[in-house]
Every structure is written in C-alpha cells, then in structure tokens.
Computed example of a mutant assay.
Amino acid sequence: MERAIERVLFASRWLMAPMYLGLVGTLAILLWAFVLELYHFALQIPQMEVDIAVMGALSLIDLSLAANLILIVIFSGYENFVSRMDTHGHEDRPDWQSEVDFSTLKLKLVASIVAISGIHLLKVFMDLEKYPAEKITWMVVIHLVFVISGVLLALMDWISNHAKAMKKSAK
C-alpha cells in the first residue's frame, strides 16, 4: 500500500507539465504584445520626442523581462519538479539551466519582479502629471515591499546556507 501511494505521489509531479506548457502559451501571448508594442512604437518615429522614445524602450524592456521570468520558471520549474531535460549535448543549452534550484529560482523571481516594478515606476515618474499622488505613493510603497521582500528572502537563504555549512563543518 505504501509503495502504491508513493508511486502515485511521485507520478503526480507530471500534473505540473501542462502548467509549464500553459506558460509557453503565455510566452507566445507576450511575444504578440511585444510585436504590437514595437509596431506602435515604430509608427511614432516621425514625430518622436526623447520622452516617447524612452517610454517605448521601457515598455519593450518590461515585456522582455516578463518573458525572461516566464522562461526561467518554465525551465527551472520543470527540471526541479517534473523531470530533467535531456539537452546536455545541445550547443544552445543555457549555462544556468541545471543550476537553478528552488532557492535560486525564488531569488530570480523576486529580482525580476523588483525590476519590472522599477520599470513601471520609472514610466510613471516620466509622466507624473498623468497620475494622482495617492496612486504614485501606493506604487512606491508596493515597490518597496517587493525590494524588502527580496532582501529578506535573500537573507533567509543566506542564513539557511550558512547553517548548513556550519552543520557540515561540525561533522
């Protein structure tokens, strides 16, 4: 009975595979949004001012950061929770692919969220008159919460790794 339960539990990891495929679909949607944003950005070239150029570039960077984040989640999530990808012989295999464990994944996610939030704030700061002061305040507060969460998460991982290292050296 115990073996049967363990087999079912172990096989249940494959329930995550459709979610990672769904994230691939999300990448396709982000690509579509990127192409549309690039198209609208390019249409503005004849009358483009510096602020519009910076805002357009920030929008494209924002979309690419979100896509990078999704790709990291797909690769590392699949390898950490479902199955190893058999891509060791492939010349384009990312160096980080098998090195991103759950702890590193959390830090990369938080860092990406902080970067995306920072880009949104920068876009708001470039067009301040468009936003009410209360909304800007809340955006800054939320951004700071992301930053502090990231620092605390990194600190917790550092403490955990330091404790593990001390435990190993005590043996």
Rank of each mutant, 00 (worst) to 15 (best):
E129Y: 15
G89R: 10
I119Y: 05
G118N: 04
L69N: 08
V54P: 03
L63K: 02
L109V: 09
V100R: 00
L122I: 05
V54S: 02
A111E: 02
A67E: 01
M85Y: 07
L128N: 01
A133H: 11
K123R: 12
E91Q: 13
V50G: 08
T104V: 14
M55Q: 09
V114A: 04
I72M: 07
I113S: 07
K130V: 14
F125Q: 10
S83N: 14
M126L: 08
D101N: 06
A115E: 01
G89Q: 06
L58R: 02
Y131G: 13
I74L: 07
L71Y: 07
S103Q: 02
L69K: 07
I52C: 05
D62K: 03
H120W: 04
L107I: 12
Q47P: 08
G77Q: 05
M139A: 12
K123F: 09
D92I: 15
S112W: 01
P132Q: 13
V54W: 02
M85N: 15
L60G: 11
H120C: 13
I61Y: 02
E79C: 10
R93M: 09
I136F: 03
V110R: 06
I119E: 09
S83Q: 13
E134V: 12
S59H: 01
Q47V: 11
V140L: 14
W138K: 03
S112R: 01
M55V: 02
M55P: 06
N80Y: 01
V124I: 12
L65I: 08
A57V: 12
A53H: 05
L121R: 03
S76K: 02
D92A: 06
I74W: 03
I61P: 08
S117Y: 00
V50I: 13
L128T: 11
D101Y: 01
Q97L: 15
E99V: 01
V54K: 02
D51P: 05
S117M: 08
S98K: 11
V54A: 06
W138M: 09
I72H: 06
A57I: 05
E79W: 12
S76E: 11
Y78T: 15
T104G: 07
M126P: 14
V50D: 05
K123D: 05
H120E: 06
V110A: 12
H120I: 08
W96K: 04
H90I: 13
E99R: 13
E134D: 15
I61Q: 06
P132A: 14
G56T: 00
F102R: 01
L69S: 07
E91I: 15
D95Y: 04
V114M: 04
D95T: 10
N80M: 04
G77D: 09
L109A: 05
F125K: 15
L107S: 12
N68Q: 14
K135Q: 15
S59V: 02
T87Y: 13
S103K: 04
E49R: 10
K123N: 10
